[in-house]
């Protein structure tokens, strides 16, 4: 008998801040040991890599990659990959930014937390949201 899925198939961390990516990866490793995790640090081939993401993956995406807004890319990908759970994260997000993110196809939008406890809570919630029912 196959055990029920208790986490998404994979997680993609899209962040040009290597430290943030490393810490998120570390925390995901704590919360979901063994979860396949991929880190994407540039906007160069982001579109193709998101389109090729494993089915049902959780995407944690920084809003700016080297000064480039990712929302246009997310809009294109989200239209074709409704199976992905896409969370837009940023050091600072206004209410308008959140609305724009949701309109672009993100399922979640949040400011990057400043404490590990808040990060664990946020990532736990996102892992749960991306877990198949």
């Amino acid at each position: 008998m196959t055990a029920p899925a208790t986490r998404p198939a994979a997680a993609l961390i899209v962040d040009d801040e290597p430290d943030h990516a490393l810490i998120i990866r570390h925390l995901l490793g704590e919360l979901a040991p063994g979860l396949p995790i991929e880190v994407i640090g540039t906007a160069a081939d982001l579109d193709a890599r998101l389109r090729d993401a494993p089915g049902g993956a959780l995407v944690l995406c920084d809003r700016l990659l080297a000064g480039t807004e990712v929302l246009p890319t997310l809009r294109g990908v989200a239209g074709e990959r409704s199976d992905l759970t896409i969370a837009l994260l940023s050091a600072w997000l206004s209410d308008e930014d959140r609305i724009r993110a949701m309109e672009a196809g993100a399922t979640h939008a949040a400011q990057k937390p400043a404490t590990l406890g808040e990060w664990r809570t946020l990532l736990g919630d996102l892992l749960q949201a991306a877990t198949p029912a």
């Binding site: 801040e17 943030h20 810490i23 050091a91 600072w92 990057k112 400043a114 590990l116």
Partner: peptide
Amino acid sequence: SHDVKSPLVSITLGAELLET
């Protein structure tokens, strides 16, 4: 307000992680 916050988050989280 935006760009300077990123390295501050790295430092804050790093320090917290170091405690653990």
